[in-house]
């Protein structure tokens, strides 16, 4: 309940300040427009569209998800949060906020891709849905803990993508593979190894994040 209260506070704050939503919306629109202009009348393959989808998702996450902690640090309210809740509550609340934001962001990106790119055709919707759900959760967990780490650093803007790349790489590679399978219409049973990798990634990142957060959160 405490974590949900923090999520609610963050959500209402976001609706008023638009720290993350504006950054994400602008980034999504600009990136997809640039891709569309650069493709022109060229016909691109399904695999390339699937790859581009995760590239847009990765960089959109880089542009908006760090706000969860950076905005608190910039406004000087980190100390206030430290005084009213335990680190676990803070992390859970921020994670919940990022999960919702990632899902909204990625639903919007996927919708735009399906409308604007003819070659973006998913033949196994269930496989894509499973990959999408676990992938989004993984992105949210990783982005939240990285945001907590970089919020204490001086050069936040540069550090976030640099730190995110090696951490998110295994996740993005697995998601690319699963999206390829979903485009090909492969059976769910044939993709179980990749799905397990995805679930393991989420579990490992979540456990490591909760263990690490206590040390990151304190000065």
């Amino acid at each position: 309940m405490k974590a949900f209260a923090l999520f609610k506070k963050d959500w209402l704050s976001e609706l008023r300040t638009r720290y993350a939503i504006n950054a994400l919306a602008m980034f999504i629109l600009v990136t997809i427009s640039v891709i569309l202009f650069s493709i022109g009348q060229e016909k691109i393959t399904e695999y390339l569209t699937g790859g581009l989808l995760w590239v847009v998702i990765f960089f959109s996450a880089m542009s908006g998800l760090s706000r969860a902690f950076v905005s608190e640090e910039e406004r000087g309210t980190t100390l206030t949060l430290q005084l009213i809740a335990s680190p676990a509550t803070i992390f859970s609340g921020k994670l919940l906020f990022n999960v919702i934001l990632v899902f909204l962001m990625n639903i919007a990106i996927t919708f735009l891709f399906s409308v604007l790119f003819e070659s973006f055709v998913i033949n196994n919707a269930l496989l894509f849905l499973i990959s999408f759900i676990f992938g989004n959760i993984g992105i949210a967990i990783s982005s939240t803990i990285i945001a907590a780490i970089i919020s204490k650093a001086g050069s936040k803007g540069t550090l976030y993508p640099v730190l995110s790349f090696p951490i998110l790489l295994p996740l993005i590679l697995t998601l690319l593979e699963l999206t390829k399978f979903a485009i090909d219409g492969d059976l769910l049973e044939d993709s179980l190894v990749e799905i397990f990798v995805l679930v393991c990634y989420d579990v490992i990142m979540l456990t490591a994040s909760y263990l690490l957060f206590d040390f990151i959160w304190k000065e």
Partner: peptide, 26 residues
């Protein structure tokens, strides 16, 4: 705790600040 480096949320009203703090405290 009251201190000069403690900052409350500028985007909320006084009442909203107190409401959110109570809820986050549980």
């Amino acid at each position: 705790f009251v201190s000069p480096y403690l900052v409350l949320y500028d985007e909320f009203t006084a009442e909203e600040n107190l409401f959110h703090f109570s809820k986050i405290r549980g």
